[in-house]
Design a protein around this nucleic acid. Structure first.
Length: 595
RNA sequence: GGUCCCGUAGCUCAGGUGGAUAGAGCGCAAGAUUCCUAAUCUUGAGGCCGGUGGUUCGAGUCCACCCGGGAUCACCA
């Protein structure tokens, strides 16, 4: 379906009119750009002041000429000059009506696709093999999923990849610690080359015990650390027993992670990891050497990425470490091999990494090396960093005991709080236990995700459990509540035989709701451009607010409301629900039928 | 020391590409339900936008320099 510029949005339509008016007095149409206003009218144009110098006229004179040109325009109810030359604009009822008619029949409720459609890899999640998911994994999963859905909805081809951490020292820790506990396992018999059992020798619980155990021992015991390092090197060199173990570790972990991510509504297209690109590393390093972009330094193989780097003074960006003195391959190397793999297998236009802001330097290094190798342009690679989740003390979030908070404990906390709130309100008493649990889950997850996503991505935020479970104000449950009220209204209307009809926005609250609905596409486009889900959060919240106001001011099914008004308001409510649920879905938030 | 991020209401945060009297939520004060879910709505108090200069008709927004907080800086991932 092709959409004319005129119907893209009310704001766009007004901009075209103002642009035409500026052109008519021989000034660039760009000065006609209209913006949202929080003053006396819903929109304003500030171009008269900007144009003053060029036109050699006073801003107010220019504004007067523009306003003259707009006289008789059926899309504009009122154009007023204010202050030094602001033009305040009120759209006409005709324009509101025509726009809401367009939205009502649009399956995407006003959202149009991006101009340029790209193939995009979103690398998010950041989970590691053998480690339980904890609070630190929350943001990458939630933000990454939202971006993935947003970009896909905007028309792009999007591939989500979890990119598991399964190749480093942690694997050596795990293998060597398992050997200390169960030295007789067949995997440790260097003479055996194949025919290993199909069932894993360890469970997820075992692994989450073994790893910290080994890590703790190694901290104070260089000999123990050495064992892990040797195991790592042997694994990477391809020792069959260790590779067989790794496969078990990965399989068991993925099964566990799928559950954990599933709880958050997070899904991946690819479950690749560092280990999966191992076969590329040898050839990649040879090719890089042949290109002449590598150097030997202190026994390690590096790629300098900053001409002004000075190791003594710690100035500039350190080089990429392709291979350590020990011969082991590092984080840099696997990330580069992954970039090569993606180039070969997917050839994406853009790769987005949704990873902790603290790794900014790492990505800058890797990206520069990938550019040096000629695989990508710098603009094709973006690190979308995010801040840490902090406790009330401003330090990264921990449990009361000071330990790491498991993600499953966190989600359980949210569900319990939601269930309690449900009980307290006394509404869900006639619901079955299955539905109550489902509602508690959706409310809890909505609270958790919205609390995370509404923060600007790049900054740290404070995780305040009490605030999160309060469920009032700018929260996920507020949004669900708005949606659920509409659903309830629709059910009641259907019972009463009231059909949605033509929308005629007359009441101030109705008009405000229409103007808010009109902003959906703008929010989506802006959220995409900045890769910032909180812009979409802002929109759905404003929408829920505008609806709540409408709901309080404009009775729909009351006896004294005329039939056509009932139908109009019902249709407006139904339209609001469609956009609200769509927006929430893009944020990864599900709506219950009632709550 | 180098690089990056941050500093806006008592608290947690927005601020659409430089515009008028800087906005939300929580908290505080006061109010609203004969009527579609009060997890709601309305009203109010609360600000030298870290500081000083600069660019501009106009700066929370752009530039420079300070002050304060955080992250990170080659063989962990």
């Amino acid at each position: 379906m092709s959409q004319s510029i005129m119907s893209q949005s009310i704001l766009q339509t007004l901009s075209v009119h103002l642009g035409t008016a500026f052109s008519a007095i021989n000034l660039p149409a760009e000065y006609g750009r209209v913006t949202i206003s929080d003053k006396s009218a819903p929109f304003q144009c500030n171009g008269a002041m900007a144009a003053a110098k060029l036109a050699k006229k006073s801003p107010r004179d220019i504004a007067a000429l523009i306003v003259q040109r707009l006289a008789g325009n059926t899309d504009i109810a009122l154009a007023e000059i204010a202050g030094p030359g602001f033009i305040n604009l009120t759209p006409s009822d005709i324009l509101l009506k025509s726009r809401i008619d367009d939205l009502a029949v649009d399956a995407r409720v006003g959202a149009i696709k991006a101009d340029v459609l790209e193939k995009i890899v979103v690398d998010f999640g950041g989970a590691n093999v053998a480690k339980p998911m904890h609070v630190g994994h929350l943001r990458s999963a939630v933000i990454g999923e939202a971006l993935k859905r947003l970009l896909r909805f905007r028309g792009h081809t999007v591939i989500g990849d979890v990119h598991l951490g399964d190749w480093g020292l942690q694997m050596g820790h795990l293998i060597s610690e398992l050997q200390e506990e169960q030295p007789d396992l067949i995997y440790f018999d260097a003479g055996v080359k194949n025919g290993y059992p199909e069932d894993s020798p360890v469970t997820m619980t075992d692994m989450s015990r073994l790893y910290p155990q080994a890590s703790a021992k190694s901290k104070n015991d260089p000999e123990r650390l050495k064992k892990s390092q040797i195991a790592t090197a042997e694994l990477q060199a391809g020792r069959p027993g260790y590779r067989a173990l790794l496969e078990h570790f990965i399989r068991v972990s993925i099964e566990y992670l799928k559950k954990g991510y599933g709880e958050l509504g997070v899904e991946y297209d690819l479950w690749k990891g560092e280990a999966s690109v191992d076969p590329l590393i040898g050839g990649m390093i040879d090719a890089m050497k042949a290109q002449g972009i590598t150097e030997e330094s202190d026994g390690a193989l590096i790629i300098p990425v900053d001409d002004n780097y000075d190791m003594e003074k710690r100035k500039g960006i350190p080089p990429v470490m392709l291979r350590a003195r020990t011969g082991a391959v590092l984080y840099h190397t696997t990330d580069l091999a992954t970039l090569l793999d993606r180039k070969n297998e997917i050839n994406p236009d853009l790769i987005l990494y949704v990873v902790d802001q603290r790794q900014a330097t790492h990505f800058e290094q890797v990206f520069r090396a990938a550019v040096k190798a000629g695989w990508y342009k710098r603009t094709q690679l973006e690190h979308l960093g995010f801040g840490t989740v902090n406790g009330k003390d401003g330090k990264p979030f921990t449990t009361r005991a000071g330990g790491v908070l498991k993600l499953s404990d966190l989600t359980e906390m949210m569900r319990t709080a939601a269930a309690e709130r449900l009980e307290k309100s006394g509404i869900g008493q006639d619901f079955g236990s299955v539905e109550r649990a489902d509602i508690a889950n959706k409310v809890g997850m909505a609270a958790l995700k919205f609390a995370d996503l509404q923060n600007q991505r790049t900054t740290n935020y404070v995780f305040d459990v009490e605030r999160f479970v309060s469920f009032e104000g700018k929260t996920g449950p507020y949004l669900l509540y708005a949606a659920v009220r509409i659903k309830s209204l629709l059910r009641k209307a259907s019972k009463a035989g009231v059909e949605p009809g033509e929308i005629i926005p007359l009441h101030q609250a109705e008009q405000r709701l229409v103007l808010t609905l009109d902003g959906f596409n703008r929010a989506l486009a802006s959220a995409e451009a900045k890769r910032m889900p909180h812009i979409l959060c802002d929109h759905v919240y404003t929408l829920a607010q505008a609806f709540s106001k409408f709901y309080a001011d404009c009775p729909v099914l009351a006896d004294d409301v005329p039939n056509d008004l009932k139908s109009s308001r019902l249709a407006l409510a139904a339209l609001t629900l469609r956009q609200l649920e769509l927006g929430l879905n893009l944020l990864g938030i599900e709506t219950p039928e009632r709550m």
